[in-house]
Design a protein around this nucleic acid. Structure first.
Lengths: 335, 335
DNA sequence: GTGAAAGCGCTAACAG
DNA sequence: CTGTTAGCGCTTTCAC
């Protein structure tokens, strides 16, 4: 029962009086083995506490059964849940998550080295800005990649995205109902692909809607930056009619700052919208009007896409865009 | 440059005009190779895009360089940050995180099977209830484990814990300042080790403090359960003077429910304390008095402990208890 | 300091 | 259906 050395398939084979390959077969699903052999092997294996060595299997099958997931250490409130979904859904497909946390863009090269040596079957990128040159490296190494909520301009890539344009349009339609005279756009950091996309879309749509007075500020996605940006803005400017935040967390910061230090009433004095639909956006004290990303479906799409490309390396790159749901909170002025 | 097949150390050796083992030496840190050989090898390797195969190395060294981290899919607001820290700090020690998400206790056996086959160097358990019998399995397989914020009664184990007792005592001391007549203890779910510990400690300390009127309700750590529990309580009971919540999220729910549906003013009509010190506990709308867990130090301790036991499998089990910091918010009545 | 040779534990043809 | 036989790509003695 309690062995000192690791027990191998040879040990089990000897004990069960069969060949080593018989043992191997028993432990591989879908291979035909006689019931008699199977019983003998299982008895011996259980008695000895044998477990197949996945490393050895990886070496020969050239499939590690692991998917690298790249996340950012910068806390985007969204990723934990995405990560949890990814892990769960991959587990259901018999794959494991090898986690890579990215501190800053510099770490990317190191990280790539790791990914190559670990022979992962595929990669899901929840973070990081990918130049098309980086993508080319994956192609060279023949490792399928799926980008989650990020686009690489001018490159073919597998991507799964929330429909930012459609979402932001809905938000602006909500805001427009009360005919705001001016807009403040509170963008996420300039080194975030998602933030840049959301900001540019907002600006371009506002232009289409004929909004004249539009200003932009940059935060870093955090609560505090939401507060700081609004405070700083109000030092020299009147209260904006409408604030479009690149994520919910900053929207919450904006709301707290408005109420706390400036006696601004939401939504009567100022409308605020966010994006993401994080849990706390629905909390009674905030009730933000926002777009809820279809997390589960996004992840599902990403994983399907990845597995498809693992099994069929030559299938062409694909992009899927899923639509978020407008959550009508209580942060937008109504007529 | 662009090869179709994976390039191996043999390919590089041939190209560089050296033996395969020379190539191996060049890619293993700390082995003496002449500069000349090293140059030849590196030139060839770079030209061919060679990367050592970590899987093959694992097979022979019996060290996978991977640490299994067990997390719960049930969103505890704390874990994402812990996980991020774990990943970062392990990366610094040249180890990778293999992520396992646990849905419910049933999945534990399956999960263990996975862990054995993947030959991980160690395990960090952020979730799951571990019977001492489970721990014995790890011992059998000679895989070091560190339990994060959970204890296994009656078993020797490596554990890293926040000092719940000391933390809750501080919270009660805060609450006692206004001499509450009665207490409501809002516990986390019964299947959570941490929740059980926090609840029992709170009850036992309240007894010591001479509190007579103490009631217990069970939530599931979520915002909504905080709201629901308070609402349900108030149906048949008067407003409690003090509410001790097992985590911040429920405390936030309690506060929102009190203000929203019952016109209870916090902290004048009712004091509320939480536990964890999550980001949102400091948001202006809540400002919860709570205990902030020393996340970074907890993780650091856990990882040091794990690495120590990986390098030195016979070192004795160890427990480290770290003290959290009292955050004085604005949710406790002052005199 | 270098090369030859022997595996690590398993899978995958291939005969029987 | 079962056993035999080659490896997977690397690390690690051991002579030289």
């Amino acid at each position: 029962m309690t062995r000192n050395k690791k027990v191998t398939s040879y040990d089990v084979a000897r004990e069960a009086g069969v060949s080593q390959s018989a043992v191997s077969r028993v432990f591989r699903p879908g291979l035909s083995v006689s019931q008699k052999t199977r019983d003998k092997v299982m008895t011996a294996a259980n008695a000895m506490g044998y477990r197949p060595n996945a490393i050895a299997r990886m070496l020969i099958t050239k499939q590690s059964g692991m998917v690298a997931v790249i996340v950012s250490s910068r806390a985007n409130v969204n990723y934990p849940e995405v990560l949890s979904q990814v892990s769960k859904q991959l587990a259901a497909r018999n794959k494991r998550v090898l986690l890579f946390t990215l501190d800053d863009a510099e770490g990317l090269d190191d990280l790539f080295e790791q990914i190559w040596t670990f022979q992962v079957d595929g990669v899901i990128a929840l973070a990081a800005h990918f130049e098309s040159e980086k993508l080319a490296q994956f192609e060279q190494h023949k490792i399928p990649v799926v980008l989650y909520n990020r686009n690489v301009p001018g490159a073919m890539a597998n991507t799964v995205c929330c429909n930012h344009e459609q979402g932001i349009k809905q938000l602006i339609l909500e805001l427009e109902q009360s005919n705001p005279k001016n807009y403040l756009v509170l963008s996420g950091p300039k080194d975030s692909d998602v933030a840049n996309e959301r900001r540019e879309i907002a600006l371009s749509l506002l232009k289409q809607f004929g909004a004249k007075d539009v200003s932009v500020l940059f935060g870093d996605y955090s609560y505090q930056s939401g507060r700081d940006c609004l405070a700083q803005w109000l030092e020299k400017n009147p209260t904006p009619d409408a604030v479009i935040c690149s994520n919910d967390t900053m929207a919450i910061g904006v709301i707290d700052e408005a109420r706390d230090n400036h006696n601004i009433h939401i939504p009567n004095d100022m409308s605020v919208v966010g994006f993401d639909g994080i849990t706390s956006s629905a909390w009674k004290s905030y009730q933000i009007t926002t777009i809820k990303q279809p997390l589960e479906q996004l992840v599902k799409a990403a994983i399907e896409m990845l597995l498809e490309h693992i099994e069929n390396p030559d299938s062409p790159p694909e992009s899927r865009v899923l639509t978020g749901a407008l959550i009508k909170g209580n942060s937008v002025k109504r007529i």
